[in-house]
Simulated assay, not measured.
Amino acid sequence: MKARHHFHIDYRGHSVSATVQTGHTPVVEVLVDGKETGRATSRDDRPVAVDIELPTDPPTPVTVRATPGPGVPRCLLLAPDHPEGHVMPPRTY
């Protein structure tokens, strides 16, 4: 059964949101400042890494790492200055 889970964090003045759609083939979509900047799929509950850039000068490369399962999905924002990651809290709609 498919379900959609939403996550959000503000980082360096930019809004980073991730949607994780669970199911047989999980899909992760990442938006920066409301624009889709990355998308990836996985098999089963394997973690998915989506490399994106924040529109800073110069652009800042970051990675959103989503773990679709087992259980409740989780997301981390991995940045060069904080390699252990920032937890992206769940967002309810």
Rank of each mutant, 00 (worst) to 15 (best):
K2G: 06
A3E: 07
R4F: 02
H5A: 06
H6A: 09
H8F: 00
D10K: 08
D10P: 00
R12K: 15
G13L: 08
G13C: 10
H14M: 06
H14K: 11
S15P: 00
S15G: 00
V16W: 02
S17V: 00
A18F: 08
A18H: 03
Q21A: 14
T22Y: 10
T22R: 08
H24L: 14
P26C: 05
E29S: 13
V30W: 06
V30M: 12
V32A: 02
D33R: 02
D33H: 00
G34R: 01
G34F: 01
K35Q: 12
E36K: 14
E36R: 14
T37Y: 00
T37K: 09
G38S: 10
R39L: 13
A40Y: 07
T41Y: 04
T41D: 10
R46H: 05
A49G: 12
D51T: 11
D51C: 10
I52C: 04
E53G: 04
P55L: 11
P55G: 08
T56L: 15
T56F: 09
P58K: 07
P59G: 07
T60P: 00
V62Y: 03
V62E: 05
V64E: 09
R65V: 15
A66T: 10
P68R: 05
P68Y: 05
G69C: 06
G69H: 02
G69V: 04
G69S: 05
P70G: 03
P70Y: 02
G71K: 03
P73Q: 08
P73T: 05
P73N: 03
P73A: 08
L76T: 08
L78D: 09
L78M: 13
P80A: 14
D81L: 07
H82V: 12
H82E: 15
H82C: 15
E84T: 14
V87N: 13
M88V: 06
P89M: 09
P89C: 10
P89I: 05
P90H: 14
R91F: 10
R91D: 12
T92M: 06
